[in-house]
Amino acid sequence: MDAAIACEGLEKTYKNGVKALEGVSFKVRPGEIFGLLGPNGAGKSTTVRILATLTRPDGGTASVAGCDVIGNPAGVRLRIGLVAQASGVDKWATGRENLTLQAHLMRVPAGEIPSRVKTLLQWVDLTGPADRIVKTYSGGMKRRLDLAMGLVNEPTVLFLDEPTTGLDPETRAALWRDLKRLRQERNLTVLLTTHYLEEADHLCDRLAIVDHGKVVVEGTPAELKARISGDTVTLEVGGESARAAALLKPLPGVLETIADGSRAIVRADRGASAMPLLITTLERAGITVSSSTLSRPTLDDVYLHHTGRRFQGEGEAGSEPAA
């Protein structure tokens, strides 16, 4: 089999006129963990929903696990697991009942269901509360149940739309471990969207950054970091970041400047030697630099470079995602 997921020129305009996708293309190889990153509203969930056959694209083609999403949606559904951004567990049923129903609907042979459900409950550490109704679960417990439900049919392709939002660091690390294990043991292909760059860096073999309904860049985390040259100098300048960015842009050795809130972010060839010039230029223009840092490009800089925005997920680890 060639690609586990292949999409080409996906377009989607919602009924209210919102153009969510304007030609999304990427390929995911079997056994790969592939990340979709992008700001709120970039079109990540829409892409996942199209690939999971929940909504039809207006243009372009896509196939998942060898089945065309439009020509053979039933084939796709049998072979995928989906953990959507909005939970999707039945809150009036117990964890075990949720899993059992999902297994029936996923065409798991009836004889295998009890044992498979038991194993999954153990795997997500919900054996204790398995027979309590989900309404009494915490957010993290619900998310773990979601995950187990996505795996009940032993899918070949797993879609995870912001799977770790709302999970505590420990559970998140456990999930990363388990995803890597699943990939190794069963050659599971994973497409995941995330708002944590650290997660993408650690977990994804390859990733694509999506913005305004298009893939703006694609590659391994290392490739993407290597592709932006120079060092990053971050200058804390209070309210003057826009003026600072404009002032610094024409200086020699400066590749790019971005105003980001109270900070001016400068990418420069040799950051360490450029720093004094940057600071004196600003001081001379009456802008006080209260702090400055120098770093090698991180995924954060890659993101910033391609979307012009600092990653929004970073500071809001605990907040609920917008639906």
């Binding site: 929903r49 999971a52 056959t53 929940l54 039933a74 559904r77 049998l78 995928i80 989906l82 959507a84 909005a86 939970s87 999707g88 567990v89 039945d90 809150k91 999902q102 609907l105 996923m106 065409r107 439900m149």
Partner: peptide, 13 residues
Amino acid sequence: TDGVMDRMLATPV
């Protein structure tokens, strides 16, 4: 609103 419908529609039900 709970996403239960989506979850079911993504199965072969």
